[in-house]
Design a protein around this nucleic acid. Structure first.
Length: 485
DNA sequence: CTCCACTTGGC
DNA sequence: CCAAGTGGA
């Protein structure tokens, strides 16, 4: 009797899971799935406690679904990626698995781990089969006419859409039920020590219900009711339904990008095209663009800027200022509301991610890596490629970045995207009583004495001038740069 | 080589 | 209207 092991990693679902489908294609084989808890590695990658909780809750659901198909889900704990290969081999030998199936991950530590697993298992005649599953188009397949990776989004997107059109979108059904449950599924732990969630259980359960059913439900509701207005409404953080909020589900693979794309296309075919649908698909494109960047330019996995010349920037390492930013006490209401949203619900609206990352890097001139790490520590949807891409975009160290001289004005962003101040009111209760106009700049002299809210921690205009001058100095160092590279 | 086009803006 | 180049065909 053949036995196949499906190794689940960032693909915690039963539908449209390539590795699972292929492993189950052999109807004779016994199938089991395994998920590894690797606390030391997670610590190193700054995985958020709320994200660990989200994964555990998802595994809870998935274990039930798989058990109903007579596929036992096993949970194994091992400290890190290094110890994981041996742990996997032990498991294979214990249960006599002849092959291991998994979907690829593309970060460098994950790639190295998978390579060592492949080598170790091959020595024992255990086959490993890996699959491109995480993207609509595998993150090394969208290339320029000259066979190089794109570094600009627009031409990338054009080719990416062509690739999708040419290859088609094939969504795999969940596997058929196996004859019998041949192993006892593991209990799913409720916690992993060292990963306390910073958000309340109530928020976790109401905003982020776990499992692929919940994800598909969210997707369906978004496509039914909101996607057509996506382009017009997505930039207003106070409108909770204007974005899909599927990023956490995509990050852990409770839903696949193919399912997302197809749901949008189905609406297009049923009701005609719309700018909202195009825009939302374009956002799926950004997700894959940054995955391609990570594969094509692995230095972004190693804390290095995409634009190598920007490595000479001397970022400030101001702990106190950074702390104020983290806590949402900068004195800039929208920035503070945004940081408190992250600190409260483990997620931040995309517009606000730009506002706060631009503020940290351009107003405070603090190292973008500090912000990148803080985001990872707090985000349910923490994903290296997307998070790094976003931060480097704001810091002007990335590909296709914001030009260094185009710096968001936090006050204008506030007035434009939270015009009535309602979002600020939600997360900065000290300001809730202020009128729609004052709330964006509450530091009016008359308010100072009785307002329990900090003064703006920096003069935006002066900060801009300093930052621009720092970037301009880069250009005056061409000789040193040439030598260093 | 030329020419096009360029997420998220500010003043 | 400014800004500064530059990736990509």
């Amino acid at each position: 009797m053949k036995k196949h092991l499906v190794w689940l990693r960032a693909d915690l679902r039963s539908i449209d899971n390539t590795a699972l489908s292929v492993a189950c294609a052999d109807l004779e084989a016994d199938i089991a799935a395994v998920y590894f808890i690797t606390p030391e590695q997670w610590q190193k990658h700054h995985v958020a406690g709320c994200r660990v909780d989200f994964e555990l809750r998802t595994l809870q659901q998935l274990s039930k679904q798989l058990a109903a198909l007579n596929i036992p889900l096993l949970i194994v704990e091992t400290p890190n990626f290094k110890s994981q290969a041996q742990a996997l081999l032990d498991l294979c030998q214990q249960h006599l698995f002849s092959a291991v199936y998994f979907n690829k991950q593309y970060e460098i530590n994950e790639l190295a781990r998978d390579e060592s697993v492949h080598q170790l298992l091959a020595q024992q005649q255990i086959d490993t089969f890996d699959f491109d599953d995480q993207c609509l188009v595998a993150p090394y397949k969208v290339l320029t006419g000259e066979g190089r990776f794109y570094s600009v989004f627009t031409p990338f997107k054009k080719t990416w859409l062509q690739c999708i059109y040419q290859q088609g979108v094939n969504i795999q059904a969940a596997p058929d039920k196996r004859p019998s449950l041949w192993l006892t599924p593991s209990d799913i732990p409720k916690h992993v020590t060292g990963f306390e969630s910073h958000i309340t259980e109530e928020i976790a359960h109401s905003l982020w219900p776990a499992g692929e059913e919940a994800a598909l439900d969210k997707l369906a509701r978004f496509c039914d009711e909101h996607i057509r207005n996506y382009k017009d409404k997505r930039d207003f953080p106070n409108l909770d339904d204007s974005t899909s909020r599927l990023s956490p589900y995509l990050a852990i693979g409770a839903i696949s990008p193919r399912q997302c794309y197809q749901a949008a296309i189905n609406k297009q075919q049923a009701y005609g095209s719309s700018a909202g649908i195009d825009q939302w698909i374009s956002e799926l494109g950004w997700r894959e663009f940054y995955k391609h960047i990570m594969v094509g330019f692995p230095r972004v996995c190693k804390h290095q800027p995409f634009r190598t010349d920007t490595k000479d920037l001397v970022w400030k390492h101001d702990e106190a200022a950074f702390q104020r930013w983290c806590e949402g006490k900068t004195g800039f209401p929208l920035v503070d509301a945004a940081m408190r949203q992250l600190n409260t619900i483990g997620w931040m609206h995309n517009r606000l991610r730009m506002v706060v990352s631009m503020f940290l890097t351009k107003d405070l001139f603090i190292d973008w890596r500090w912000g990148e790490q803080y985001f990872m520590e707090k985000l349910l949807d923490g994903d290296l490629s997307a998070n790094n891409g976003g931060w480097q975009w704001s810091a002007s160290t990335g590909n296709d970045s914001a030009p260094y001289f185009r710096i968001f004005n936090p006050l204008l962003q506030s007035q434009k995207f939270d015009p009535n101040g309602d979002f600020i009111r939600r997360y900065v209760p000290e300001l809730a009583h202020l009128d729609n106009k004052t709330i964006h700049q509450p530091h009016d002299k008359q308010q100072l004495l009785w307002l329990d809210y900090p003064l703006p921690m920096i003069d935006h205009k002066a900060a801009c001038a300093y930052t621009i001058s720092q970037f301009q100095q880069l250009k005056e160092l061409p000789i040193g740069r040439a030598v260093n590279e």
